[in-house]
Design a binder for these strands. Structure first.
Lengths: 246, 246
DNA sequence: ATGGTTGAGGCTGTATACAGATTTCCGGTT
DNA sequence: AACCGGAAATCTGTATACAGCCTCAACCAT
């Protein structure tokens, strides 16, 4: 019997990924109501896993529940995306502050410094020369370690949740589709902030750590403003920005 | 035909309320796995609404999903509850800061000042004389208005979510079962912080507003420490503290 | 012309049967 | 005695039938 990977994954998982993909792609504009029966026919899956998948997407924040049952695609305005980025800054700032205040283990600090050094080596001689893909991976690692160093599962869950909206993720402007001059140049500033974060945490300077992390998130804000206001053609190249409304 | 209220509400809602009640009451210790079939038999409801209810409870943060399906009751340590309170402080602090920085409408400010005045009138001549029940209601209103004044649906959702854990709610220590001297006395300090919050927001002092709100949440932290360390008999009288572990 | 009422269509809520997967326990073997 | 294997029990995943409710539209009455 041939190995069927699609047979291994549940129908719920298929529906979840498929619906998420279509929503993020902008196939369903914000406010669109999703009906179980047509979706079940489209995806060739019964209503039960569709329901389950929509419930998960509501948990992710991509769908809203209607009072009398049913789901609609959540709509995001430009201001909403800015607020989501600011929120991430606040939460990561709190993680940084707690890491500094409560102290981190030498192993944790070493881990972070290791990623910091590897991020450094992504930059070449010219200021335009950056290994974008490697930077993107390492940046995700850096942020994951930061959240970990706070040592709070409650905070970790909230950050995971707030970060699940793709445009609010620390990697939002680091997809391979956004390898553009203006974003590449912002990485020098970002890396300097990474350095400041490690310095603040290792010196147990909580307030400095908190506000550096906040300002770090605001790089994403500036990148977003550039995309929306000055170069709207890029909108579809930033993950999740396809569902942006009005 | 007689009016059947139970016939109006769905089985999902019944299961949701019933399970939530039992979890918060501590009937299922943290880590307990909840099986669909026995629960369906116990509650005289089929598996489908039970599943749906458990999915909602996972969204609320009371249950965790297992990797291969199924749910377990989430376990909270003392440190987790402290972190949840600190998190609320951070989020409400952000709401206060944004309200101050972005400015609020005269109507919004008047609304908040109205509740502030009514909170004042809950206090009697003696420092021990407080209309506890009225204060509890108005306090909830005050916090709701604060979140509203920030004018961010993204932030509002996060605060609603973080606050859904009963012990992290601004009203956690204001249930009628916790009408105790030491909690009543903390209300004078809390009300002074309410005043400072209104002052800071109306003067557009963002930083002051943010840190007053954080400190305000830490009253709950002190109350919690009192309950746990000095008067454990009270644990079962604080909403949601029944599911606290180790 | 406007308002209310009634009916039909369609959507979600629920129960249940069956299938697939996983875990557990028991027995045998090394 | 410990470990491995297999079978049974049990749990979740899924499809589907049916019931109830909500909405919307059309028609009738005033």
């Amino acid at each position: 019997m041939a190995v069927e990977d699609t047979g291994r994954t549940t129908h719920t998982a298929v529906a979840l990924m498929e619906l998420r993909k279509r929503i993020l792609n902008g196939d369903f504009p914000g406010g669109t109501r999703l009906f179980e029966v047509p979706l079940a026919e489209t995806l060739q899956i019964s209503r039960t896993p569709i329901r389950e998948a929509m419930s998960r997407l509501a948990e992710e924040g991509l769908l809203d529940r209607l009072t009398n049952g049913g789901f609609v695609v959540r709509s995001f305005t430009f201001a909403d995306v800015l607020d989501a980025i600011e929120l991430r800054g606040v939460l990561e700032g709190t993680a940084a502050r707690l890491a500094a205040e409560r102290g981190v283990t030498p192993e944790g600090l070493a881990q972070m410094q290791g990623v910091l050094a590897r991020l450094d080596s992504c930059f070449g001689a010219s200021s335009d020369d950056v290994d974008f893909e490697a930077y993107s991976d390492l940046n995700a690692q850096f942020h994951a370690i930061l959240v970990n160093l706070a040592g709070s599962v409650v905070l970790q869950r909230e950050i995971d949740r707030a970060t699940r909206l793709p445009f609010a993720s620390p990697s939002a402007f680091l997809s391979d589709k956004t390898n553009i001059d203006i974003f590449r140049q912002s990485l020098h500033v970002a890396q300097e902030q990474h350095r400041a974060l490690v310095s603040a945490i290792s010196s147990r300077e909580g307030t400095r750590a908190e506000f550096v992390a906040r300002e770090h998130a605001r790089i994403a804000r500036r990148n977003l403003e550039y995309v929306i206001l000055e170069n709207p053609d890029l909108i579809m190249r930033v993950p999740g920005l396809g569902l942006l409304n009005s």
